[in-house]
């Protein structure tokens, strides 16, 4: 009897184990995905050899890339075709397309994954896209050329930058109205939250700064400036940024200053500058936080950095005007 039960348990555990391993093997491929704005494709890079294993042709002008929660699908905002393409990660094919408003640039999912919040550059609004219906349900007017979008983990607040209006809009996600406009530096671009969400960091491309917002009262608590050796203030044009899970380090691209800044998030001090390609924009951190991938828009390549010693491993040519890079791990 006991034996039988044990056998059953073993079988169940065994089956469970199989499910688990197969689930794991379908994900965590480690593959690197890069959107190329001008050659209308998403490049797939092998994580071990750093070779391009596939070019997935997309709609015109692919820019931002976002995963769904189980990373089975990659969503690609295609600015010139007003569409989000959906890539299936197992087959590496486009399996679906979602109409957006004009010129989608950057987007995020709502935490329940029912909605997509997308900044529509051309008609200066944040579109709220219902994924089930596949249509824009609503939109919130923003300043001209909205760009970066991020939501709080509880899904209650959406933050959007307006490049032209020099501000961050704080949007109430339930009622869809702008609660507050926070004035920041010139041409604000992208966001990152500290892991505790107490601070929201936003890059201001043309004033060469990172503005740090206290999320409890939406006041500015600090402004950071950057200057890699040999560059002038006006060369420093920060755009992409990402933080490690511990909340101790921030990696920030400096655009035309062709460097990545490694920042102590708590002390708000620059620890290091790493030379990468020309006009470094989006950055992506591997899950083990040992490598950083950087898309260089003007040298048409992606730089891979070893974060153990902050040195460049390699730069790989990827296609015309790489915009965003993400990793499946």
């Amino acid at each position: 009897m006991i034996n039988l039960i044990l056998n059953k348990v073993t079988a169940v555990v065994f089956i469970f184990f199989i499910i688990l391993t197969s689930a794991v093997s379908s994900k965590d491929t480690g593959l690197i995905f890069v959107s190329n704005e001008k050659s209308h494709e998403v490049m797939v890079i092998d994580p071990d050899t750093y070779e391009i294993i596939k070019s997935i042709k997309t709609s015109k002008r692919p820019r931002d890339l976002e995963w769904n929660s189980d990373k089975s699908k990659l969503y690609v905002a295609c600015g010139d075709d007003d569409i989000i393409d959906v890539i299936d990660i197992e087959t590496l094919e486009i399996v679906d397309q979602i109409d957006t408003g004009p010129s989608p640039e950057v987007f995020v999912f709502s935490p329940d994954e029912k909605l997509i919040y997308v900044s529509n550059e051309e008609d200066s609004s944040l579109g709220i896209l219902d994924l089930e219906e596949g249509i824009i349900m609503n939109s919130v007017p923003t300043g001209a050329e909205p760009e970066g979008v991020i939501t709080s983990k509880d899904g209650k607040t959406i933050y959007v930058t307006s490049e032209v209006a020099d501000m961050v809009h704080v949007i109430n996600a339930d009622e869809l109205f702008v609660e507050k406009n926070i004035i920041v530096g010139t041409r604000p671009r992208r966001f990152a939250f500290t892991p505790d969400e107490k601070e929201l960091w936003v890059t201001a491309e043309l004033s060469g700064e990172v503005w740090i917002i206290d999320t409890s009262n939406h006041e500015i608590i600090d402004v950071m400036k950057f200057l890699p050796p040999g560059f002038r203030e006006e060369d420093v044009t920060p755009v992409g940024l990402t933080m490690n899970k511990e909340g101790t380090l921030t990696y920030l691209s400096l655009g035309r200053a062709n460097h990545i800044a490694v920042v102590d998030t708590i002390k708000r001090e620059v620890l290091d500058y790493i030379l990468v390609g020309s006009r470094a924009w989006e950055v992506a951190l591997t899950r083990d936080e040992e490598k950083l991938f950087v898309a260089n828009g003007l040298s048409d390549d992606v730089t891979i950095i070893n974060l153990k010693n902050n040195t460049v491993i390699k730069s790989i040519p990827v296609g015309r005007v790489p915009h965003t890079v993400v990793i499946d791990d």
Binding site: T142, G143, A144, S162, V164, A165, D166, M167, N181, I183
Partner: peptide, 11 residues
């Protein structure tokens, strides 16, 4: 002028 409305509101 149109581009500046929102900044005007905030200021």
């Amino acid at each position: 002028e149109e581009e500046s409305k929102m900044m005007g509101d905030a200021l």
